[in-house]
Amino acid sequence: MQAPRTEELSPLDISENDVIEAMKHITGYIDITPGDFKEIYQAAYTLAIKRLVNTLKAVHIMSSPLFVLEQDMTLVQAVALLSAKKISGAPVAEGEGKLVGVVSEKDFLKEMGFGATPSFMQIANHCLSHKGCMIGKLHNKTIGDIMTRPPITGTPEMSIGTISTLFSQRRINRLPIVEADGRPVGIVTRTDLAHSLTVLAERSKP
């Protein structure tokens, strides 16, 4: 999955006929050619999108309060919590609340010996042809053993443009947002990012 990048947000491709139709709604002679107007519109649209992408920040789109796992929690406990919350991963904190890593489905699958991105069919094939399904490997381990560390984190002031670049370059799906003092304040997931694009589209309506 590719995260959308700023430069891919091309302006709505209006035609000169659209411009002419719009001009007909305005009384009075408008002394600009539809072609020139289109050029101005496209340049202005690009500027507006850039401005919106830079003004919408992590603090506006993040989910909070943040659900955090403890690093000495057993995997059995963690799986129960994550499945109850219907989420596929979470940041991990040590005793004093400082973030030390992030755990996701990928880490569980890696621990089970499947590699980071197996398909469901690969897992099904493995489980059907082997006894025990390798899930047993998850007993007797703690979150601290399998989490990805150090965590990749963002700041509340990070723009959604920067966040989406981070998502696609680091191949991550969730970004814990921490204050300067390391205190976690929220999390931006791919879902939050997708939702922010809807907000952008709403805002850019005239």
């Binding site: 000169e16 002419i20 001009m23 007909k24 009384t27 009075g28 002679y29 408008i30 002394d31 600009i32 050619t33 539809p34 072609g35 020139d36």
Partner: peptide
Amino acid sequence: GGGQSPPKVGWAE
């Protein structure tokens, strides 16, 4: 050329 003229104005104009 290749561009187009703006539309004709109405009678009130």
